[in-house]
Design a protein around this nucleic acid. Structure first.
Lengths: 205, 205
DNA sequence: AAATTGATAGTTTTGTTAAAAAAGTCAGGT
DNA sequence: ACCTGACTTTTTTAACAAAACTATCAATTT
């Protein structure tokens, strides 16, 4: 029985992998279930045997990505020598995550508003995990005596994450609003975020 | 000749005022030129005598709002006792500005993406003025010796404004993305921004 | 029984067209 | 120079059919 489930799990993994590639290269709406099935030389109906619908398939891929991303963070947290290092690692890891999977998030850019709630559950889950880790890092620094005691670490981390999220490519001319930044701007944004970290950390010390 | 132009200017003002009321109550797309003309008991054609088109009319109102807003800021800047006070005034004034004219910006929410470039010119102009004022405040504090010298005040102010802009209503559950925040959330956002100011200012000291 | 598929049903997107509404123009009047 | 009614052009809306795609299921294979 466990062997059977192993087989099933392997096939599910294969489907997730193929779907990921399609979504990454063509985005959500320009990927059809037929194409995914074709890539795997299986019938479309079989996809529906493993996953309830297209949206759930996308979410499953996304959950996997999110889980990998969070694992990266969790593995390193708890081993930092100061807060700046922790913030830096968070921002760098996040940057890498976005750069590597940029096209996968086409879905976000297209729908922009009114995305399915499941998406927001995942986003919310990532955010909560990040908050927990970063708040923990602050707490840890406080206990080590490197930081003066803080009333509400979580509140601070929330502001920190929002602030990071708000960093856009500037220059007033090209200051068009766009929830999801263009790929060419990611590096400039990243650099600005590093500056924000410096100011922020110094303000907390 | 100047009397004639005075008359013209008065009429232009009346048109701007009537348009402002319409845009504020019904938003851009649900306001028609006929209605504005009706409010003023004039023919639609006359509106086109004073303004080239609807979009330019909207921009003219917006420029007026922007100018009033900036005047508010400029009048007070230069008279602050510390940086925190300056930042606070900027954020409070901005908050008030958004709350008072909330519905006027329907235009932004509806079109979201691909707004006419003229809009971005105005937004960019406001932003540049804000940057100038805030960077000046930083410079002034440096000269007073209250702040240690800073490499690039403008860069810092840009990060500050972006960070403020990024503050959204949190709670992970209701963490849906929305460029333009809902009216009910404005106060919560404002409070978070006050916290950001505290951290930021302390980090610069 | 679990895994798989071809055929098919149901839904969303896309394209077409016509009518309605609104933007924008202009010749002519004060 | 200021103003308008009548007119033209453009944009929005609604309705509808065709196409593309999602999703289902009875039947078949392993």
């Amino acid at each position: 029985m466990s062997a059977v489930n192993d087989q099933q799990d392997i096939k599910r993994e294969k489907i997730l992998e193929a779907s990921y590639q399609r979504f990454l290269h063509y985005g959500y709406s320009k990927t059809t279930m037929n194409e995914i099935a074709g890539d795997l030389s299986m019938s479309k109906a079989l996809l529906y045997y493993y996953f309830p619908d297209k949206s759930e398939l996308y979410m499953a891929v996304m959950r996997k990505l999110a889980s990998d991303y969070l694992k990266q963070l969790e593995d390193k947290f708890g081993h930092f020598t100061d807060l700046r290092e922790a913030f830096l690692f968070q921002v760098n890891t996040h940057h890498e995550f976005i750069v590597n999977n940029y096209n996968f998030f086409d879905f976000f850019r297209l729908n922009e508003q009114n995305l399915p709630d499941t998406i927001w559950e995942i986003v919310g889950h990532i955010r909560e995990a990040e908050i927990k880790l970063l708040a923990g890092a602050i707490q840890s620094e406080v206990e080590k005596g490197n930081l003066k005691p803080v009333a509400n670490p979580i509140e601070i981390v929330e502001v920190f994450l929002d602030a990071l999220h708000g960093i856009k490519v500037g220059g007033s001319l090209s200051y068009k609003k766009l929830n999801f930044p263009h790929k060419e701007h990611l590096n400039e944004i990243h650099n600005k975020r590093l500056l924000l970290i410096d100011i922020f950390v110094k303000g907390l010390k």
